[in-house]
Write a protein that binds this DNA or RNA. Sequence first.
DNA 1: GCCGTTTTCGGCCCGACTGTTTTCAGTCG
Length: 573
Amino acid sequence: MQNAEVARQFEELADLLEIQGANPFRLRAYRNAARTLSGLPDSIQDIARNNPKELLELPGIGKDLALKIETIVETATLPQLEELKEEIPADVVRMLDIPGIGPKKVAFLFSELSIHSLDDLKAAAENGVIAEQKGFGKKTEQIILAGLEHLSQAGNRVRLADAKAQSDEIIHDLDTLKSVLQISEAGSCRRRKESVGDLDILVTSSQPNEVMDALENHELVKEVLARGETKQRVRLNSGLEMDLRVVPEESYGAALLYFTGSKEHNIVLRRRSQERGLKLNEYGLFREEELVSGRTEEEVFQTLDLPWIPPEIRENRMEFEAAEKNKLPELVELEQIRGDLHMHTTATDGTASILEMAEGAKSNGLQYIAITDHSKRVTMANGLDATRLRAHWKEIEKVQSQISGIQIMKGIECDILEDGTMDLPDDVLSEADWVIAVLHYGLKQPQKQITQRLLNAIRNPHVSIIGHLSGRLIGKRPGADLNYSEVLKAAADHGTMMEINAHPMRLDIDDIHAAKAKELGIPIVINTDAHSVRGLEVMQYGVYQARRAGLTKKDVANTKTWKQFYNLLKTSR
DNA sequence: GCCGTTTTCGGCCCGACTGTTTTCAGTCG
C-alpha cells in the first residue's frame, strides 16, 4: 500500500462527502490529510503497522484519521468509503470534473433529477430538462454538453517542460506590448512542479484590455473561457488552460505571491498576517484600509518578518521553519552543474557518437561526463554484453585522446535483473569508472521483492549510483512500489549515490524523496539520461526538481570540479 | 475532522467571475 493510494482514498471520500453536502471544514480535513500523506517520504504503511502512535504527530492527522489510515493499510479500504460508493455512482463523482459544475449542482442533478450516469446527464441536457431547473439555465446546459466532450482530457496534468514552453512563448510575446509594464509566470509552473494543471500569468499594465485582447488573439490560444475587468481565462490549442491577471503596480508583489502559491503556503502567510493585525490578499498587505506593502514579494515577506522564499519550496513543508531560523537553503543552480553522468550513444539507443556527446557537453560548459549505454538485458535498445562493452570502453579511451577540456568516464547503465542479480558480472563492472544500476523490467513486482532487488544492487561494491529509482513516467506509469525508507537507508549506509534523472518524463527520484536523501547525507547526482546532443539540455529540469527538494550546491555531487568528484568517487568505494 | 502561549469549543484564507439573479449562490483558483 503506497502513500498515494491512501491519499487517493481520502480524496475520494472528500468528493463523495462534498456531494452529500458535508461540513466544508471536515472535507478540508480529509484533503489536508491526503496532502500530508502524498508529501510524506516514509511509508505510511510501515508507520501504521509499527508505530501507529506516530500517525498523530503528522500534521492534520488526529485520532479519527489515524484510525482510518490503519484501517486502509490493513484492509485496503474503508467501510465508510465503500458505503458512500454504494450510494453515489462513480459517474456522478465524475461530473465534478466538468468545469463550472461543482458539488451543489451535482447533488441537485443526482437527487432531484435522478441523473445517475453521464449518459443520463447528456440526455437531460439535450432534452432541455436541465435548463428549466431553478439555478440552472441555457448557459449551464451548454457548459454541461461542452464539458462532457472535454471530460476525457479534463483534469489531465501536463509535464512541466511542455507547460513551461507554452507559458514562456506567450509571456515573451505579451512582453513586447508597450502597455505591459511587468509580466511574470506564476502558479505551479513558477514553482517548477513536475506537472502543471494550468498556467498563470501576472501583468501590470496601464491598458488591461489591450493585454487581454493580445492574449485572446495569440496563436497558441483557442478560445476565451471567461473575461472580466482584471482577469481572463483562456484555453490553449493544447487543451491547457491559462489565467491572466492584471493588477496595479503597487500590488504586483502581493499578487505574484498570491498567484504563485502554493495554496497551503499562502494560507500560512495569511495566518501570519492575521497574527500581526494585518490582512493579506492579492492586492497587498493591509492594516485596516491602509496598504502596508505589496509592490514586491520581498517587501511583503519582510513585513511578515521573513526573508524572501524561493518559489520552488513554497509548499508549506519546511520553508517557514527554515526561514524563521534564517536557514533557508541556497538552492542549487544550473550554472553550478559541472558534470553529466548518464547518457547514451549510437552503441545502444542514442543518436550521437561518443565524440558528439562529449563536444555537446563541453560546449554546455561541463568538465566531465560519463558514457553509460545500456546493458544486454535491454535488447530493444541493443544493450551491450561484456565483449561489446569492453570494446566500447576502448572507443571511449580513443575519443578521450582526441578531445581536451572534458573528462569522459567509462560507464554503464546496468540493469538489475528480475531475480535481483546484475545484468553484467562483477569482474566487468569492476573495470568501469562509473556504474549506474537501474530497474527497467519487473517494475510491478511486490514491494518486498523489488525492494530487495535494489538492496542487492546498493550493496554491490561496484555500483556507484542508482538511476531513476522508481521507474515512473510522469502521467503515464506509476513508479514501482518501493520501501523508500529501506532503500535510502541502505544507500546512506553503503555510500551509494542517488540520481535525479532530469528527463522531463522521469524527474526520478522525486522532490519528496530527494529531500529525504539529502537528510540522510546521500550524495545526489543530477543527470540528463540524454539520448542525443539536444537531450543534454534537459539538465535544467533536474535542477528544478533538486531545488524543490531544497538541495544546495553541497548536496549535489556533480557540482564538484572534476578533481573533487574523482576524489569523492575513490573514497566512497 | 483538526487544533490550541486567546485550548476542549468555536474557529478554520480570500476574492473574481458567471449565470441566474433582483442581491446572490456556486464555482474556481
